[in-house]
């Protein structure tokens, strides 16, 4: 479904991504994991077409979007929803206007259809009744859920999440993670970027660990923990120090 082949990207003379290859299967929840500054968010921007790689290809539904200019890739791009780290909500618009924004822009729905979809997505993210509020009247968790609702409104095949639980309390973190999990039942492919191990383990079918712009390991949790890479051991140590599996690995 999404394939990144040998992506390399340098910004202001600094290498951000170095020969990154990734394959994300349709309908899965894939987590890109790594420390801050590893290049995780850049991968999402490359998938979205916001950044053009210096080398490599990004194949979405069989089309290499790197070769296509903005308008040609528009139909592919509109199949992708994005939940930004800072939510990117339009603060001059109400909750319902935010949720409806991209639907209105796509200009293929009647106002009645738009209202129905908005009500449905707001209900899905548990924000019914907040239609007339503005983003600054919402809590952090509610803003995140609204950002998810806005992304869902255009019925995307793929949703990208940039650090979806950063700055949220444990209850809201759980609510957002459950919401991401529930997207699977809609057949949506989710790609989540995070540096929080517990979140990655809780929701990811496939984990990809990135460090210094390079893919260090990829697979399910067991595959990852079986790698001999020192960075992986150090990165996972905090969470798995009590697990006999990791202790054995560490003794090695």
């Amino acid at each position: 479904m999404i394939e990144l082949e040998n992506i390399s990207l340098a910004l202001t003379g600094r290498t951000i991504l170095d020969d990154v290859s990734l394959f994300i299967e349709k309908g899965t929840t894939s987590v890109i994991l790594g420390p801050s500054g590893a290049g995780k968010s850049t991968i999402l921007k490359v998938i979205l077409g916001l950044l053009k790689p210096d080398k490599g290809s990004v194949i979405i539904e069989g089309r290499n979007i790197v070769d296509e200019n903005g308008n040609d890739a528009l139909d592919v791009r509109r199949k992708i929803g994005m939940v930004f780290q800072a939510n990117a909500l339009f603060d001059s618009l109400t909750v319902e206007q935010n949720a409806a924004y991209f639907l209105k822009e796509s200009r293929n729905k009647t106002p009645r259809e738009i209202n129905t979809i908005v009500e449905e997505v707001l209900s899905f993210v548990n924000l019914s009744g907040t239609n007339k509020l503005y983003p600054d009247q919402l809590s952090g968790g509610m803003k995140k859920r609204l950002a998810i609702a806005r992304a869902l409104a255009v019925d995307p095949k793929i949703i990208l999440f940039d650090e979806p639980t950063t700055g949220l309390d444990p209850i809201n973190t759980k609510a957002v993670l459950n919401l991401i999990k529930s997207l699977k039942s809609r057949g949506t492919t989710s790609v989540i970027v995070t540096h929080i191990l517990n979140d990655a383990i809780a929701i990811g079918d496939v984990l990809t660990v990135i460090n210094d712009g390079k893919v260090t390991a990829s697979g399910n949790l067991k595959d990852i923990l079986n790698t001999k890479d020192q960075f992986i051991k150090d990165f996972f140590y905090e969470v798995f120090e009590d697990a006999s599996f990791f202790v054995n690995n560490k003794k090695e």
Binding site: L50, Q85, N87
Partner: peptide, 13 residues
């Protein structure tokens, strides 16, 4: 700064 412009670009606007 709040990524609203990236959100527009992401949707092809």
């Amino acid at each position: 700064l709040s990524e609203q412009i990236d959100a527009l670009r992401a949707f092809g606007l």
